[in-house]
Design a protein around this nucleic acid. Structure first.
Lengths: 336, 336
DNA sequence: CTGAAAGCGCTAACAC
DNA sequence: GTGTTAGCGCTTTCAG
């Protein structure tokens, strides 16, 4: 930086000021300094800067699984509001690995980011590792903080499950199945609770839980075989805990006599996975609004960064919404 | 850190050593120090550390579009080899925005990462911004550096296009169409070249280019309408420049008389998009091996970080591979 | 605006 | 192993 100062024929402090307090520097000298910066290819050392100021203008987000478009949406939302506040967002991927998640958190902590957003692996696996961060502001995304120690934003999973089941019931379906598991995934358990609540509110409607070992397409295909074995007419409505599950089941069932989708069996998925609308039969789904969750989470983090540790740690709940498509509406649905 | 030293009853230098040169410290004192660290919740300040050493153990990757699973694969591959070398990988998303891309590069440059990987927006839009980085080692992914100033890893797009067309020709198809555009996307242009080369090598086979305005599903649907208008039998094989394009076209064409896929029209896509195997008709595709590209790119970067600026800037070419599925093989194909 | 200087938290080198 | 110290590149303050 002193090179720049010499090259521009100004004082070192003036160089610093043109970068940080441009209004304290006259138009003319500012341009001289910037010319020198460009000429020398000077790049300010952010490590030294944040050492000196004790602050940083970047925030980090730790994502459970980048392969899941839901998390990418969260990151995109967080990035948008971070930029609005003049901050940068950097991402670390835990890749469904608890050890990597811890490393990523430490990484951000040690590099003294202004704050961190954490979209952790599913709750059941995390509970217990209560103390996540002490000094750095931390906001949880898609995870309900137990202790109230952290601010956060979560989706109302139960509401989503309720909406899904209620949609099918509204279409006249009475013999429902809920596809999903394992139940130690709290999101799945809550979605099931919501579906049960909808059924309980509608006399004459039944719901059976078909537990799966996971939420991916192969699990859906496996469950599809089970449903097939139960015989046509056993169910006339299917709530799947994920879009992938729904697609897998549809791949097996649709076309088989007595299992036409949606005539014999109306299907609703969950997540609004990006390809759900492009699969063999576009899947009705529950959208969790990942991008909005990211925006809100980043906003909570900004509050905390500015407000200090006294800021109240609120948890914002985002309501998911139904997006009906062909798998439940049939020909009544049309693309766009 | 001096707090830790006092708390453990050792010298400041010893604390530094237990973290950086554990072998220079006796077992006993090392444990004392670590206990103090845990007790005080001490977190080493990486900004100060990298200021003092002039080095960093994290590398950054700037990705053109996180929504595209190809880039996520690249990041995953890079992360794997970075960890093998004891380094951390942080990600910044350009979100198909040139301005964000520049900001992200500067961000990493200023934070003095050990090196950066850049998977940039398509070449045509980037050419000209020749000087990307001076001081920080930089390796390009999925982009052919013109000047030889940067190391890089790219896919052999022409080979991919050749393979796709050759696959159809091998199946006895003779009236091919190539779907894709705009041609100022160099990847598309090169894939088309490859397809043309395959056709030229096989007398009696023809290929017509149907230009699209983009590579997404709606563009594919639009092109599908065009093909439909041309009448049944005009084409018997279709090479699409992306899986999304292929899916869109199939959505329109399959089922229409004379357009059964693959009987009347065999289709090959490109990218091995994660959902390509789960669409209405699983799409044959060309896989670019994103994860391997990421691994190789990170390895090149490691070489450069260790070897200094004298390291030769090589460009590694990864050959894409055909993954045949139902859209070209028909019933001969079985899942897995 | 200049010029000088203290200090951010750490590493690395020194004599003991 | 200890205790001390210079210095990484920047910000910030102060008198002029």
């Amino acid at each position: 930086m002193s090179d720049v100062a010499r090259h521009a024929g100004v004082a070192l402090g003036t160089v610093s000021n043109t970068m940080n307090n441009p209004d304290k520097v006259s138009e003319a000298t500012r341009r001289k300094v910037q010319a020198a910066i460009a000429e020398l290819g000077f790049i300010r050392n952010d490590a030294a800067r944040s050492l000196a100021t004790g602050t940083s203008s970047t925030i980090g987000i730790v994502l459970a699984d980048l392969s899941n478009s839901f998390f990418v949406d969260i990151a995109r939302g967080a990035d948008a509001t971070a930029r609005q506040h003049g901050m940068n967002l950097i991402i670390a991927n835990s890749d469904v690995d608890l050890a990597k998640q811890s490393m990523n958190i430490s990484l951000f902590e040690e590099s003294r980011v202004a704050g961190v957003l954490l979209a952790p692996l599913d709750t059941a696996y995390v509970r217990g590792s209560a103390t996540l961060l002490r000094s750095t502001p931390l906001v949880l995304v898609n995870f309900a903080a137990e202790s109230g120690h952290y601010a956060g934003v979560v989706a109302d999973e139960e509401h989503g499950g309720y909406e899904a089941a209620q949609h099918l019931i509204g279409l006249g379906r009475t013999r429902l199945a809920f596809l999903g598991g394992p139940l130690l995934l709290t999101a799945v358990a809550q979605r099931l609770e919501g579906a049960r609540a909808a059924v309980a509110a509608n006399p004459g409607v039944t719901l059976e839980h078909i537990e799966t070992r996971g939420l991916n397409i192969p699990h859906g295909r496996h469950a599809g075989q089970d449903i097939l074995a139960r015989g046509a007419g056993t169910f006339d409505g299917l709530v799947a805990a994920s879009d992938l599950l729904a697609v897998g089941a549809i791949q097996i069932l649709d076309g088989k006599p007595g299992f036409d989708v949606p005539t014999d069996l109306a299907v609703v998925g969950y997540d609004n996975n990006h390809f759900a609308s492009e699969s063999a039969i576009p899947v009705s789904t529950i959208s969790q609004h990942g991008e909005e969750m990211g925006r809100v989470a980043a906003q909570l983090l900004m509050n905390e960064i500015q407000g200090g540790p006294t800021t109240i740690k609120q948890t914002v709940v985002i309501k998911p919404d139904l997006i009906p498509r062909r798998s439940s509406l049939g020909d009544a649905w049309r693309r766009d």
